[in-house]
Simulated assay, not measured.
Amino acid sequence: MRNAALGALAGLVGGLVFGAVMAQIGFLPTVAALVRADSPALGFAVHLLIAAVIGAIFGVLVARQQELLLWGLAYGFLWWFLGPLTLLPVLLGDPVAWDVATARALIPSLLGHLAYGAATVPCSFFWQAGKESSALNFLCLPRSPESSSPPCSASPGGPSWPGPARSLVRNRLR
């Protein structure tokens, strides 16, 4: 339940970022049409509600994951496909169009959904309880199953990365 609540808060942050994109591309009245209105302000409110709900789902799904940035971008892509390409037309009574022309027309929305996923990740990560966190943990390579330490850790000498990545960095710096 806590992961869902924290995910909802992170989703609101992501929703604010994505809301700016939606305002720029003029998509908020389309979202408002879900509640039979055309007001951009109401569209923004509906958008934030949706962002919180899918953020809560994200919080539950990634509670034990390591590569959160990858998961956030994948989640943004998934919701671009589910949202404007699939559910929005169905809910508005329009036919679903999974074709290149429709996808191309919704590229700005894809960028917004990816921004949503990327903005939701740091908030979700930093708000999760019990994680040993550094600013780099949500970007790092997965740890080995036998390791009990976090995948990346900040140390006085700077961050340290697991196994092959650490060797690669050391060799490049010599």
Rank of each mutant, 00 (worst) to 15 (best):
93 G>K: 01
32 A>P: 01
151 P>F: 09
105 A>N: 11
149 S>Y: 14
4 A>E: 03
108 P>L: 00
34 L>A: 00
27 F>M: 14
165 A>C: 12
6 L>D: 05
95 P>T: 08
141 L>W: 13
13 V>C: 05
165 A>V: 11
74 A>L: 15
121 V>C: 06
125 F>D: 08
96 V>E: 11
5 A>T: 13
157 G>D: 15
58 F>D: 01
47 H>I: 05
158 G>N: 12
159 P>Y: 10
159 P>C: 11
43 G>Y: 02
64 R>H: 15
14 G>F: 00
46 V>K: 02
76 G>R: 00
7 G>R: 01
91 L>C: 06
57 I>F: 10
86 T>V: 13
12 L>T: 04
67 E>W: 10
165 A>Q: 06
53 V>H: 08
86 T>W: 14
119 A>S: 09
41 A>E: 05
168 L>N: 08
14 G>A: 04
70 L>E: 11
64 R>Q: 15
50 I>R: 02
32 A>N: 00
10 A>V: 07
131 K>M: 12
83 G>I: 00
114 L>V: 02
94 D>Q: 14
115 A>H: 02
108 P>D: 10
81 F>I: 15
62 V>Q: 13
111 L>C: 14
118 A>H: 10
21 V>H: 04
21 V>C: 09
102 T>S: 14
159 P>A: 15
36 R>K: 08
160 S>Q: 15
102 T>N: 12
155 S>G: 15
82 L>K: 13
167 S>Q: 14
47 H>E: 04
